[in-house]
Write a protein that binds this DNA or RNA. Structure first.
Length: 425
RNA sequence: GGAUAGGUGGCUGAGCGGUCUAAAGCAACAGUCUUGAAAACUGUCGUCUGAGCAAUCGGACCGUGAGUUCGAAUCUCACCCUAUCCGCCA
């Protein structure tokens, strides 16, 4: 959500934002509705003012004076009722349009329609070369009894999986390394709920609109698709203290996604599952563009560093306008090399929103002049499992089918340096 | 699941049809006093929104939404949320 004053004064910016994001939104419709809204609001407020004045007189008077005044106000009441109905009608339209206003993408966001137009801004390492034909993670993990997809489906349904033996150990090791790395960045670890109330999803912008990708309970709660939801909900309707610097969280939570729009995609393996775990970085900072930009770069760099610890080839892309969400100002995706598919796959997404989200969740802070302002919010994946296992296993596989443990994970693998047993040559 | 009690400003808490412009206390901020601090005293002290250069003025907000009324924090209805006890339960 944006400030209506800002929208009124920067209608052109909104127009080009919609164009750049490939979002169908007509700001003129909103401005017309807004004009009407202000006009009727003024009338309603004048009538209410009249009523307030008369009300005081009525309280002080009696007898005929009193009855005359009451009669007079009966008419005002009818008029007011009619105007209020008019106002409600305009407000309905106004609110609907307000929720659709796209946030302004940064000037550095590349132009484009879809993820195919995202711009590579960094490339680290070269795609792994093998002296043999590499296997995909599904074949390797099944052969090594590190994952069980058949029983996963039997027990959990489509996209179900078990991580087992070294597969499970590897996941826990990644978590440990992630804790070590990200906590060295002074983030506050927080384990957040996945079961959330509707308000938090409305606040973060996943509702309305994302209903079909969310699991819902019989008590009308939802299972969040990311820890960002509960983390942003943490300070909902509160005034936070940013005088000692930004609030920086490292949130952990199970994540649930129905993947309703992805039925044919990535049907095998650990790339796209209904239930996974994610460590997520979340920042609330002062309402300054420079601050947001600085933290955005920092968040993304934190995750890049983690991937570098694992020594997996990756590249970072700046998402193009058409690949940005309604609220995002700018977004980076980090994509890891996946030998089995011979391409990079997204592992992380770092975005900033200015005050787009905090307006909805109503999280403010007092600035140095004591004025209440909406904070800026940012979030970035720290690390998702099991998706990250795909790249670890495929890039570290050896000719005999075993997997070398990445050096950084050695301290957390209970002495194991190689996973699995030779099964091919 | 059963029963009960509640939702009022940053917090505690009064108000239960018309000076509510929401008491009072605490906290906070400023000042006086003081070498400095504390205490004491004095003053300030909500949010959103519209008009205005500004001082200021108007409107809204007592969990949410409807309703009754000339007038609602106060009455009616529905919903949401919280707490406590019992039951069940990792």
């Amino acid at each position: 959500m944006l400030d209506i004053k800002f929208i009124r004064e920067n209608a052109d910016l909104i127009k080009s934002a919609a164009t750049k994001k490939r979002i169908n939104f007509n700001v003129d419709d909103l401005l017309v509705a807004d004009g009407k809204r202000l006009e009727i609001l003024k009338e309603v407020e004048d009538l209410r003012g009249k009523q307030n004045v008369a009300s005081e007189s009525i309280a002080k008077s009696n007898g005929d004076d009193r009855n005359a005044l009451i009669e007079e106000m009966r008419v005002v009441k009818e008029e007011l009722k009619k105007k209020e109905e008019d106002l409600e009608e305009v407000m309905k339209k106004w609110r609907t349009l307000m929720l659709q206003v796209p946030n302004i993408p940064d000037v550095t966001v590349p132009d484009g329609v879809s993820d195919a137009d995202n711009q590579e801004v960094k490339k680290w390492g070269e795609p792994t070369k093998f002296s043999f034909e590499p296997l995909d993670h599904v074949s390797i993990m099944e052969a090594q009894d590190m994952a069980d997809f058949e029983r996963g489906t039997k027990v959990s349904g489509f996209r179900g999986y078990f991580l087992k033996g070294d597969g499970a150990l590897l996941e826990f090791a990644v978590w440990q390394l992630a804790l070590k790395h990200f906590l060295s960045k002074d983030l506050v670890p927080i384990h957040v709920p996945s079961l959330v109330r509707k308000e938090t999803l409305l606040g973060t912008g996943y509702l309305p609109g994302g209903e079909e990708d969310l699991y819902k309970t019989q008590d009308d709660e939802y299972l969040a698709g990311t820890g960002e939801v509960a983390t942003m909900g943490y300070y909902m309707d509160e005034t936070v203290d940013l005088s000692n610097g930004p609030i920086k969280f490292l949130a952990f939570s199970p994540c649930f996604r129905r993947e309703a729009g992805a039925h044919g995609k990535d049907v095998k393996g650990l790339i796209r599952v209904h239930e996974f775990f994610k460590w997520e970085q979340v920042i609330l900072c002062e309402a300054s563009h420079e601050e947001s930009v600085k933290h955005h770069e920092w968040l993304n760099r934190n995750t890049e560093e983690f991937i570098e610890l694992l020594n997996i080839p990756y590249h970072t892309v700046a998402n193009c306008g058409g690949d940005l969400g309604q609220g995002q100002v700018k977004k980076y995706d980090i994509e890891l090399w996946v030998p089995g598919e011979n391409k990079y796959r997204e592992i992380s997404s770092a975005s900033y929103f200015h005050d787009f989200q905090t307006r909805r969740v109503n999280t403010r802070y007092k600035d140095s002049e004591g004025k209440l302002r909406y904070a800026h919010s940012l979030n970035s994946t720290a690390i998702p499992t099991p998706r990250i296992l795909v790249s670890i296993i495929e890039n570290y596989q050896q000719a005999d089918g075993t997997i070398k443990v990445p050096e950084a994970l050695l301290p957390y693998m209970f002495g194991k340096t190689v996973l699995g047993k030779p099964f091919r040559s």
